[in-house]
Design a protein around this nucleic acid. Structure first.
Lengths: 148, 148
DNA sequence: CTAATTTCAGTCAAACTGACATAC
DNA sequence: CGTATGTCAGTTCGACTGAAATTA
């Protein structure tokens, strides 16, 4: 005898399924799981990639500028740079023209690191988008870009 | 004189922009910001809504069943239920037919709470989707559903 | 015995806040 | 003076882990 609702497949509440924000968060959960599984082997985090990518593309930068590019708070930038510096992926030098700033550069080792992680990320994208047609992949890009 | 890359608009690295997972996470960041701003006035969290919605739709349930419906780990279910019980939004009773289980029910007060939070969420969806056409909103739903 | 359910005490990543020292 | 930068300590939310206690 079953007194309470506890039958086989309690499905996701319709109220949640109707919310775009819910669908977004659940798709993001899946993406995040794929990424952190893939990054586990490399002891990497999303923050690290974002900072390395910013440095690679815009060259030596102040921390505040890294934060703007990588969408990170400056306190998080400081923390991530500490971890990246410990592995010599980046270098911090005082800015001679502004005593408040530090000039952060990516090292050769850091560039190699970024390249490796980008390959990991590319593989994850394939897995993530597997259920979609090419048209849907294109649509998804366009729509998500509009939501930023 | 500007010695380092630190000009006006350090834009998001192209490498990140090319990653669907990045676009997904940033869109989700925006959605999450809108929601937590809106929920701040109500001292509510996403976990609470998810549990209340599951209880509302499937009726009295074991905690494990709530976890399946709300996509929550059972440890998180226990924690969220503690907070919901403190405000009498839910009630926990032992299951007479299975000593391991508790039967959780939503209270009248909890149903009112859920209704209020759903209105908040509906308003957030409008704000979130504002940049999209109707066709894009439809496409987004379909595509995100496929990514679950 | 094993398996299922709940609870507890954590970890971890990510986004964020407030305060401080320093330098512009 | 006020503002910008970097640093530090801490919070919050969300996803998750491991272990204990109880009971089926």
């Amino acid at each position: 005898m079953i007194a309470v609702q506890d039958r086989p497949n309690p499905s996701t509440p319709a109220m949640l399924q109707a919310l775009p924000s819910w669908l977004l968060s659940q798709a993001n959960v899946r993406a995040h799981r794929l990424i952190s599984d893939a990054f586990a082997d490399h002891a990497a985090t999303g923050h690290q990639v974002r900072v390395l990518a910013a440095l690679q593309e815009q060259g030596p930068s102040s921390q505040i500028s890294i934060g703007r590019a990588a969408h990170l708070d400056r306190s998080d930038v400081a923390r991530v740079l500490d971890s990246l510096a410990a592995d010599q992926f980046i270098r911090r030098r005082p800015d001679p023209s502004d005593g408040r700033r530090k000039i952060v550069s990516i090292t050769t080792k850091g560039s190699r690191r970024l390249r490796a992680l980008r390959h990991v990320l590319d593989a994850v994208q394939q897995e993530l988008l597997a259920p979609l047609t090419n048209q849907e992949r294109t649509d998804l890009r366009i729509i998500l870009a509009k939501l930023q």
